[in-house]
Structures are given as structure tokens and as C-alpha cells.
Amino acid sequence: MINAWEVGTMVAVVAGVVGFFVVLRGSAFPAHAIPNGAFAGAAGANLMGISPLLGLGAFSLLGAVAIGTLGRRTRSDVATALVLVLMLALGAAFLSQSTEYEPQIFSLLFGEILGVSTSQLTPVLIIGAVCILATFAMFRQLMLTCLVPDIAHSKGLRPAVVDLMFLVIVAGATTMTVPVVGALLIFTLMIGPPAAARCLTHRPGVAMALSVAISVSVVWAAIASSFQSNWPVGFFVGVFSAAWYGVARLAHTALRARRTTLATAISYTAAS
């Protein structure tokens, strides 16, 4: 139980930081595809008798690189969809050859946060720290290439390269979190809390702090609820994230109604 709190908090912090850029850069689809497809790697590793973490890492990295490089040449949503189905199809093939079936899939997709062992803590901590450090190291590049691509270009930044590096960070976050919280939960955490934070403030620093805070609150509340009710953690994470987003959207609309004069004048100037 103590392990669940520790690992849940770490996952929430990483999801809050990385997710901030997932939302800002509109990378929701890759953020769904990489963790979801990576489970095929774990299935493959299982079949070959090596550590599932290795398989996960390899597949999420491969997926990120494939999406990043293919997305440059063709429509990025098409590239993401095709890489995802290819990874899933491989996963289905691996699973068909393996004897373990349902519990395996279930835990890879939905995680077993309440059953995290102490030995799993160290790798989660290390990979998580690397992801956060990498995100902060690239903070300016990540902001510039999506907000003002022209300026980024004039400063010699190549959006495609920054994009690829960001997807690798997402792959890192995936590797760290899938074994403990599952492929589906990490995606939910990388979208809901940051999207809610973005509705509440326009300042990047504040939004990121808020995103982490919301994400941590969602995970804590979900673990507590799950412990009480015995229902899966993933359910509470999904519902609490969506609820946060709904509340934030309502607050955003209320705030905007108050500032309508100013905002329309600004958006008007920007639009025409």
C-alpha cells in the first residue's frame, strides 16, 4: 500500500510534466499510441523469456521513432494510426503463441498499482527523473517550436527533431509507468490534468505546476477510492481526470464571460 502511494505520486508527477507538452503540442494520439502499442513489447519479451520492462522499453522507443520519422513524410495522424495497429498486431501474434492470456493483458493495460513491489520502485524513480530532467532541459525548444514555429526556425531549431525527441520522452514515461499503472491509465493522466490546467491559466509555468498538482490529486484520490471500494484504480483515474477537465472548462467559460470585452478585442485583432 505504501508502495502504491509512492509509485503513484511519481507517475502522477511525470504525467503532469510530460502531459503539459502533450496537450500544448497536440500530441494526444502519439501519447495514446506509444503506451498502448508498447504492451506488444512486453508480450514479446514474455514469449522470449526476458524482462518485460526491456520489451516495453524497446517497443515504446521503436514506436516513438517510427511515429516521429514517418509523421514528417506523411500525415502524422495516419502514421500514428498505422504504427499503432502494427504494434498491436504484433502483440496479438505474440499473445497467440503464449500460454498466459487474460490476466497478463489486463494487468498490462490497466496496471496493478496496488500490487507494486519494492524492487519495482527504483527503475520507476530513475526513468521518471530522467524524463522530467529531459523535459525541463528542452523546455524552451518545446515551447518555441509549437507556439511560434517561425521564430524557432530562425533560431535554427528543427521542429521535426524536437518532435522526435519529445516522443522519445513520452516513450520513457511509458516504459516507466506501464508496468505499474498500465498503458491506458498513463494516457488518461497525460491528457486530463494538463488539459484542465490549460483551461485555468494561460501562463506556462503556472499551468505546468497546476497540471502536476491536479495529476497528483487524481492519483491519490483514485488510490484511496480503489482501496475503499476494491474497484480498479484505472476507473477512478479516468473518471476523476474527466471530472477535473469538465470543472475546468466550466470555470474557463465563467472567467471568459467576465473578460469577454477584452478577450474578443484581442482575438479580433489577432484574427483580422
Binding site: 496537450v23 497536440g26 494526444a28 494520439f29 501519447a31 495514446h32 489486463f106 490497466f110 491506458l184 491509465l185 494516457f187 488518461t188 491528457i191 486530463g192 488539459a195 474497484w231 480498479p232 484504480v233 484505472g234 476507473f235 477512478f236 483515474v237 479516468g238 473518471v239 481526470s241 474527466a242 477537465y245
Partner: peptide, 19 residues
């Protein structure tokens, strides 16, 4: 895509519960 992601996240949570 964010709207899609929010719906997908909530649906995933429900999936976990139903399963």
C-alpha cells in the same frame, strides 16, 4: 485531439470497471 483524448480517457476508466 484533446477532446478525443478526454473522452477516450474516461471511456478507458469505465472499461476497467466493467471488465
Amino acid at each position: 485531439d484533446i477532446a478525443t483524448g478526454i473522452v477516450l480517457g474516461a471511456a478507458t476508466g469505465l472499461s476497467a470497471l466493467f471488465l
